[in-house]
Write a protein that binds this DNA or RNA. Structure first.
Lengths: 214, 214
DNA sequence: ATTATCTATAGATCTATAGATAATGC
DNA sequence: ATTATCTATAGATCTATAGATAATGC
């Protein structure tokens, strides 16, 4: 509660605690102001005022607004990540999907967070190099690992590498959320389940003529 | 060449021509500076200098940088749109995909435009209300119409409305481009074809056990 | 005379950085 | 004494708007 795991040892305790408190105050103030005014419109000054620090203190902790949103993304991913990692290694892919969908939907359905989804998607696209650096992003690494296992059991199409499939799946989930938040016609979890079925089964009618047998 | 179709009639000719020229100069200068400095980093002043007008003239024509990128998106969509509209009403879905893929890949593979793809995707997400206002965006309307026809012939899954499928298809195409531009490991057209096959057939292995029979 | 297009510029906000303060390591 | 954290602030850039100019409609 007091310190992060990588802050132990001989480091200064008072200073670390103070820094983390300021950072947390700024983070929560920023999210609040983002929701109130919109990410693009809000003023850093208002964030600093709410956090009761100077405007420059914000820039000391966060190089830009984008970095706050990236931290929100990591916070949002944590419950899904823990739920997926708690599954046994041979868990069926469906249970991985369920863990991701339920935790993600619960986080983003709460309060008025959905106002931030589109901006966060933009940050995510700008900051992450898709198809590369998978290890740097824990949720991508976790889902990727499960997809690889499923591919090994022959559950996934052998045409496309499982890591690429995992990236496209997460991308679809994210895009679905971004579209859901502008018009929430159904519960988010239902929407994400629908996208999952579409992703796995494809858009073509299985009863109709098979499309493009690759 | 001189005027847009909606500018005929008794409107001032000299003024219209002058305005469109200034607008075009600003547009091309903006794209050039965006490519050179990045959309987020570039200064409006540099765009105005290159276009040889005042900085405020930029804001007169474009409320923000985003509006320039939106115009680039419309320009990029035009060849695809015309190719799709030139197809006969009963053209197979595959020819619609081909028209979109070839024209889109040709546009974005040229020069160093790919540097703008991620930013444009962000603008597109921010400005378009997915699942709504389909008519306002011509490319969505055109693809949607073709998907509806295909659904009528039983080629598409009956579970999801064809307009929604069309939106998700375009979203996947866009996301694939955004990921391609950070790591162009293959020709863009090949990547888009792969995404199309994945979209239609799904990620599950047809030889394996069918997934989630809805 | 009125209006559309564009310029000049005031005021707001951001970015970069020099300096203050207090915790830390020696 | 040194360093990390934060503040104060100068300079850069943006946003908003009053005003200049020349084309337009009557």
């Amino acid at each position: 509660m007091l310190l992060d795991a990588d802050d132990q040892g001989t480091h200064g305790l008072v200073r670390d605690k103070q820094r983390e408190e300021t950072r947390k105050k700024l983070y929560h103030a920023a999210i609040e102001i983002f929701c109130r005014d919109g990410v693009a419109n809000c003023r850093i000054e208002d964030i600093a005022l709410k956090a009761e620090v100077s405007r420059a203190a914000f820039y000391f902790h966060f190089p830009s607004k984008d970095d706050v949103l990236l931290e929100l993304l990591r916070e949002a991913e944590t419950p899904s990540l823990e739920a997926i990692n708690a599954l046994p290694p041979d868990a069926p892919l469906q249970s991985v999907f369920d863990a991701l969908i339920q935790n993600t939907a619960a986080f983003w359905s709460a309060e008025n967070r959905n106002r931030l989804l589109v901006d966060m998607f933009g940050v995510s696209m700008r900051r992450t190099t898709i198809l590369a650096d998978r290890e740097a992003e824990v949720i991508r690494a976790a889902v990727s690992k499960r997809f690889e296992f499923a591919a090994g059991k022959g559950e996934l199409s052998p045409v496309i590498p499982p890591e690429v499939l995992a990236d496209f799946y997460l991308l679809n989930i994210f895009a679905a959320m971004a579209s859901w938040c502008v018009q929430p016609i159904m519960p988010l979890a239902d929407m994400l389940s629908g996208v999952t079925v579409l992703f796995m089964n494809g858009a073509s009618n299985p009863a109709g003529s098979p499309f493009l047998k690759a």
